[in-house]
Design a protein around this nucleic acid. Structure first.
Lengths: 342, 342
DNA sequence: CGCATTTACTTTCACGTTAAAGTATATAAT
DNA sequence: ATTATATACTTTAACGTGAAAGTAAATGCG
């Protein structure tokens, strides 16, 4: 196990100074084509691999970005986001440090501190609380932070948002266009900012059509599927089922559909059900959910590019805040209401 | 935005040499308690954060490990693995660089190269092919690599395995103990090494009980749920349903159960269905799957600890290869066969 | 009291790289 | 022929830290 070769190793073999090697490998024009070729050949032969620690230290640049997420379990959207960030960062030759905070502020802070120590050029954070002062204390003035995800303060200067008010409007307009008048909105975790935006959009849009906005919130289920099941059961008992239900999440919609079907209601014939996120397209057998697609790929690409632009100090003022919109994906859990002739 | 403070900044303020600061912050005993306290106070006040690039360069250590996985989508086990690795690494003050190869060897190689350049102390790789020569070319002799996951060559010297032969035995023994004689094994992707291990375990164990090992493989479905559905449909048509089915993955079991129920069969009363992995416990409403739990947390913890031990050159010879076993999780998709009196 | 040891530092150098400035030679312009 | 310029390098210093060696003062000990 011989020592890792450095530019000095190559310099010696090539009979030039180590700086000539450094510049040749970086393709600087003041090294002759011939010398560059020779140096590159030797570098290849000895299996040279640059030392980013030294490079970053000397050049005051960085070749990595960090990302901190609340979790990466199978029901979270951060997987999709990270997947894209990883790919986009690799395209620009950046590594990504990832930390999972498990919704623990102390751990989130530790990840942030470690990543800053390790020299990330920028940080993409999906904070686990709206208060991000612990992150700002560490990063302010030193490492740019880009916020993504539901808990982000809407006033944050550098952040990527998804317009959930608009997605509510999309959902209502679509269902209304099919003839639905009796539309309900099901949501979980009422304290969540994104849920409140959806609720506001839903209520406002229903009112513009002179329809009664029926909002059902469930705050005490153990997960969002359960919440969907709970609310649906209640409405079935009370015989208050609407003709269409828009759920704040796909998993909730799955719970709703299962419960409806189990109780003899046909989806979409009796009740239309619509989701939000488009994350579990082919996981649930028999459910091909009509939903609103959140553009995770686009958001991930934008996040990686913005983070790297911030690292390289070439982010433009108007790229600092970007708003994304969901798009309608028509599959087969929504249909016009019964007895409706369009 | 003032310059980031370094140990030299602190040294000047404290009126000591920068080395005294370095040693005080690291708690070396040759700096007096009084001076250490004073230095730490100043460090706190100026918001000092150590520069790991410089530290690693000077001390030839590393404060990060890397992980490369094929993907992080909602149906993969790598999420669970990474979550634990992230937590375990944080406990020892290590950052984790994560790269998603999307099952692309070139991208996997690029991630590997970038991480090595960025100075990871060790690499945890779930390779996307059994041939890992591209990784060895980059890492051999410089960065230790720890292999995890299904594609790993069983002869690899540094690797964490799960004993899938044993999990097959566990499944068969359990079903047999309940009285099942007509047991089938359903699997997807027959080329996969882990599947072959399960198949071998299943076949061998069935034979020891003088039972006919019924193996059903499906290689052309678009995902594992589909595969479960396909095989089940075929068996229902042919009226060849066994009394118990062990599926190579939980998702497959979900597809099987849905199909059975849709066709009027009760699970577990008519047919018992068992899975493998224990990943989707509360996602599928109405399915509380009896399965074999893969100890992702333990594997993740072991992987992080081993990778860091390798980084710090204190891994013991016998920690290099570790084998983990699944454990039975009895929920409610398995019951004794009909007409069986135990 | 004088010498060894301990305490609490400081000085110097190295890690691998890049930035910046310097230099020798060849070529071009006047 | 002289001077300017371009080419192709080299030399020096710096990035922030830590290892190793050095040192001055205080303390211990016979």
């Amino acid at each position: 196990m011989d020592k890792k070769p450095t530019i000095k190793t190559i310099a010696q073999l090539a009979g030039v100074s180590h700086v000539a090697v450094s510049r040749a490998l970086r393709g600087c024009s003041d090294i002759s084509a011939e010398t560059t070729k020779r140096i590159r050949k030797i570098a290849e032969e000895v299996g040279y691999s640059p030392n980013a620690n030294a490079r970053n230290l000397s050049s005051k640049r960085s070749s990595s970005i960090g990302m901190i997420v609340p979790s990466l379990d199978e029901t979270s959207a951060y997987n999709a986001l990270f997947n894209q960030i990883s790919v986009s960062a690799a395209k620009r030759n950046y590594c990504v440090m990832l930390g999972s905070s498990h919704r623990n502020v102390q751990l989130e802070e530790q990840h942030c501190r470690m990543m800053v120590e390790n020299g990330v050029g920028a940080l993409i954070v999906s904070p686990c609380t709206s208060d991000v002062s612990h992150i700002k204390n560490i990063c302010y003035g030193h490492v740019p932070v880009l916020y993504v995800g539901g808990k982000t303060d809407p006033n944050e200067t550098c952040a990527l948002f998804c317009d959930y008010y608009y997605s509510a409007v999309q959902a209502v307009e679509y269902l209304y266009s099919l003839g639905h008048k009796n539309i309900a909105f099901f949501a979980y975790a009422p304290a969540n900012l994104t849920i409140r935006q959806k609720e506001k959009g839903f209520t406002d849009c229903m009112k513009t059509h002179n329809l009664k906005p029926r909002v059902y919130l469930c705050g005490d289920a153990s997960n969002t599927i359960e919440a969907g099941i709970d609310i649906t059961k209640k409405l079935i008992l009370r015989k208050e089922l609407p003709t269409a239900i828009w759920c704040a999440s796909d998993l909730m919609a799955v719970g709703v559909i299962q419960t409806l079907r189990k109780n003899g209601f046909l989806v979409p014939e009796d009740v239309s059900v619509m989701g939000h996120d488009d994350l579990y397209f082919d996981i649930f057998p028999g459910i091909c959910l009509t939903t609103l697609h959140t553009p995770f790929s686009e958001i991930g690409t934008a996040a990686a590019d913005l983070a790297i632009d911030l690292t390289e100090k070439k982010a433009t003022e108007d790229s600092l805040r970007q708003v994304f919109r969901t798009s309608l994906v028509e599959r087969n859990t929504v249909a016009p209401p019964k007895n409706y002739n369009s």
